[in-house]
Design a protein around this nucleic acid. Sequence first.
DNA 1: TAATTTTGACGTAAACATACGTCATTTATA
DNA 2: TATAAATGACGTATGTTTACGTCAAAATTA
Lengths: 118, 118
Amino acid sequence: MFTSKLRIMAEAKNQLFDSDLQELAQLFKALGHPARLQILKFLASKNACFTGDISDEVPLGRTTVNQHLAELRKAGLIQGTVQGVKTNYCINPSVVKHLEEMGKDFFDGLSIIECTDC
Amino acid sequence: MFTSKLRIMAEAKNQLFDSDLQELAQLFKALGHPARLQILKFLASKNACFTGDISDEVPLGRTTVNQHLAELRKAGLIQGTVQGVKTNYCINPSVVKHLEEMGKDFFDGLSIIECTDC
DNA sequence: TAATTTTGACGTAAACATACGTCATTTATA
DNA sequence: TATAAATGACGTATGTTTACGTCAAAATTA
């Protein structure tokens, strides 16, 4: 099909990298827009799934917000289930936790020392 | 000037967001490519600045790697100083630490609970 | 049942990112 | 001093992201 071929082409170079790095980069990328961070924050602030239109909470148009929601969904960070005419959105705790751990491991693994010669 | 005007236009919508979210998103975005994660890892693995061509360490062409280096530099995560014909690259520990802390705060602030109704 | 609400799907313009080739410059080295 | 090495600057093709408008379908509500 059309899109899958494009996807393969787009990610062809990514295949050259360690799969852990690929996965982590993809998750970081999903966090790489303030709207998406705000959406995650908002969803987490509810003590349940949020039912309704999240674009009321984000300073962007509804369709744009929907696109960011789709992005977060694609990354696995949130779930969205239809319930009647409304849609339930909530955070996917396991994926967020996984990201948190991978991120922590990444930074711990860096073991950065102050550089003296530059 | 030309580029700055474009930049302002491009980031116009970002201005609508909380500045903390903007900053964090920008840093996460810089981490959103496996090549950049690998570069950070590699630079951290040296116990000093690395002098020379990092493209030997990353499965991409030299100019592409240079572009990723510029990206990391723009985000403040690394420094690069010219030394004769070679260039010294090293991690900017304070910015990495700052990112680490902002990231931690973000995730801690989420206080995610398992959702029962979806 | 007709109107309204809610939402995803689709299209699209503009900006950005990715990957790389080529060129110019700067500094060592033969 | 000529040659080679290292690197940034620039150009460019292709693909992706962002932002939003419009449409259509599904489900309420009047």
